[in-house]
Design a protein around this nucleic acid. Structure first.
Lengths: 274, 274
DNA sequence: CGACCGATTGAGGCATGTCAAAAACGGTGG
DNA sequence: CCACCGTTTTTGACATGCCTCAATCGGTCG
């Protein structure tokens, strides 16, 4: 399995999987993720996709989806586009604690009625489905596997949050940026948005810095080093990985927390790769 | 440090609540927390407490509950004592990403079968209930309110994790320590372990430093400042808050994320205090 | 064309890390 | 009761990674 690591550049596997999902091209990404770790019946997939599609609407960039103290209208599911969750500090600094990518559920905490303590806002123009909690709960009751799949999804989000805590606290600037980019790249791959070793990355250096607890200035210098090392390029809102193993090594990136593997032991991915 | 203290100090409310729970003194803390935000029937409380009590066992300090890569035997619920979740880095440094207090569920991620990416270990001698997932699932199916209560509990854990990400990334050393101590103090209060403005805090300065992304040396200096300012004292494994409002102010601590308030708007706590 | 936003560069300062070592503490055995 | 030992806390001197402030440059859009 050691060789798998070097061979396995994420993105190269997305071809076969993509052909599998043609039911609903836009709303499909969440289902795709869920099914990846948890089998769903066709009926369940259709039910969820239908619900999402019915509730979907376009929003422009920088739209605030959910503000501090606001009583939420429902759970926000990103169908397309990027969003983030952040806190504004008294001195005007912004700290981003999460990025949301296509197919992500932004606010499981709607179930915590006590109100948000942070803000969620779109980064790019996006399509968002706003599902009120009772409706989703109803769907979950009708389809128990969906309940479990969504529960997993929220636990994965928690695992990502732990990884961020680690990342911000432990690593050098260069490593932090590298680690974040590794994570985003794999998460984009998981929903089929990586092609030929590159994916969209609509973040400014301010976003990256606010997420890694760095100033945009220092972020800039760290990025330059990563480029100079030949590990990646990041231009025109597009990230391209040139040397995945080296990047992973530098970042001390262990993808285990993303829960990507199909099934422990089956290693379906590497088989498909061989 | 006197008048303000008596008005607003958490812990002064624990008296009345404590009288409420005498069913099972040791296993009771999780139930106490759950019921605080979510009504449970007596039958449900008894069922959960009975299950926990049946599976409970003592462990000594520094016992590893769950190790990286290990297939978990079940969900660990701390009945008494402290534990933490950490990652060891290649250079020997340790990064703590979570503390677990009496009444906490350590590893909801057992449901993520792909194996742990971190280590969970006791800090003090403790009593731990190890509940295998199917059994807990069965209990949850029989008692839907328990499902929701546990789901909330895991979402609260995720909110705490976001607060840690923020804390580590944004604040000065002094503020980080202060913020962490505020959080731990309130969490101890939530399970009735605060008396007269003080609670057990069995952490070394290494623990605090590893959790705040600081060296123990710098942690020491930050703590000295907090003591010198008259905000708190921390000695003999015991934390005493002398000036809660000032500490909260210094730390920019907003307890909203802990989801403590009974019901938004009722402010039952402060009314009881006045 | 002017205004604005994002990326980039440079110089200097400060908070925190690193290294080294001495106290204080707490338990254990003689 | 004391001597011993490992752990934890504390102190000091020095190094450095990242922040701050200030400015330029290049796109993009009205």
């Amino acid at each position: 399995m050691t060789s798998v690591l070097s061979e396995h550049r994420p993105g190269s596997t997305s071809g076969p999987r993509t052909s599998f999902s043609t039911r609903s091209p836009a709303a499909d990404k969440l289902v795709r993720k869920l099914r990846d770790r948890h089998p769903l019946s066709a009926a369940e997939e259709v039910a969820l996709n239908t619900l999402l599609a019915a509730k979907a609407g376009p929003i422009s960039g920088r739209t605030v989806l959910l503000d501090r103290g606001m009583q939420p209208s429902g759970i926000h599911v990103l169908l397309d586009g990027w969003a983030c969750r952040y806190t504004m500090l008294v001195d005007g600094r912004r700290r981003i604690v999460a990025f949301y990518l296509p197919g992500d559920v932004c606010d499981f905490d709607v179930f915590l009625l006590a109100g948000m303590d942070q803000t969620i806002a779109a980064i790019t123009p996006a399509r968002v489905a706003v599902v009120d909690a009772p409706m989703l709960a109803g769907l979950a009751i009708d389809h128990p596997p969906l309940t479990q799949a969504l529960w997993w999804e929220s636990l994965t989000a928690a695992a990502i949050q732990r990884a961020w805590t680690l990342n911000v606290g432990q690593r050098s600037a260069k490593q932090r940026i590298a680690h974040l980019l590794c994570e985003l790249y794999l998460r984009m791959d998981r929903v089929g948005l990586v092609q030929d070793g590159s994916c969209a990355l609509p973040l400014t250096q301010f976003h990256l810095g606010d997420a890694c607890a760095l100033t945009s200035i220092h972020t800039n210098r760290a990025l330059q080093e990563l480029r100079r090392d030949g590990l990646l390029s990041l231009e025109a809102r597009r990230l391209t990985i040139h040397d995945w193993p080296a990047l992973v090594d530098l970042a001390a990136f262990d993808p285990a927390y993303l829960q990507l593997s199909k099934e422990p032991g089956t290693s379906g991915d590497s088989a498909a790769l061989g």
